[in-house]
Amino acid sequence: MNIMTLLLTVVSTTLVYSAPMIFTSIGGTFSERSGIVNVGLEGIMVMGAFSSVVFNLFTAHIFHGATPWLGLLVGGLVGVLFSLMHAVATINWRTDHIISGTVLNLMAPALGVYLTKLIFAGKGQTDIIQQPLANVTMPGLSNIPVIGPIFFRNTSLVAYFGIFVAIFSWWVLKYTRFGLRLRSVGEHPEAADSVGISVYKYRYMGVMLSGLLGGIGGAIMAESITLNFSVSTIVGQGFMSLAAMIFGKWNPIGAMGAAIFFGFAQSLAIIGKYIPVIANVPNVWFTLAPYLITIIVLVAFIGKSQAPAADGSTFVKSR
């Protein structure tokens, strides 16, 4: 394998594996910036993965090539519905955020497999989808010398879309009225309330955005990597996204960077044996690498992350 192919493989596997986490960790950022801790991202991803695969299997003959993209949308919408459970529990019913998020994580795999067995005559996993999110070569960009082939040939389009969403989300949070208000209810809900901002409304929007993006993240995972739905479709990507969000200090671009970093560490496990210098290292170290590196970087460089001030608290409007 020459250096060019190697780089191309590293970049494209990194992007493929980071795409689900990019979307989900940005979703988590919106929720936590509004003050609602969301450890249920894993469960939201499971529902997104389940619904997108079912949609893909049943409508591939109607929508053909557009199916996986519509599948992302379906996954996102189901994610929104599922996240509403978290929103009602934490915002109106004063449930502890961690308990409610844990409920999402407990509920989603059970519900997903239960429904799968109902739909597919007792089978615990679905068939393989026929219209996956395939890698694409971008016309034009891929012809740029050196950079073109590495970054834009046979690569994950949806990951670039995720990078765009990260930058857009950063802009929304930092510069728009919506973003300012969303952040204000997460930092100091009483102050926001006193100037007439509806804390409940913005927190609902924060949680629903996490449902949308988490559902899309799960759908990407299912439609580009596992290609079917079973109980082992989402195994920890939601938790990794949560870590990416904290790693990125509750900033969409930071979260995206951390997600890409995790994707890179995971891709090492797959392509490590082709890289001459480290080819002889036992495979288990590559499997462990993403988790070990995360702890080391967290301790050595990041230290104590500062969450939004009112994160995890329940706001009760005074009468």
């Binding site: 308990i99 409610s100 509920m107 519900l111």
Partner: peptide
């Protein structure tokens, strides 16, 4: 499907959390 039991467990924890 036996997963109904896990759904029940998740629902129980949901109500424990929503004790308010």
């Amino acid at each position: 499907p036996p997963e109904i039991v896990d759904i029940v467990i998740a629902a129980v924890i949901f109500f424990v959390g929503a004790n308010y």
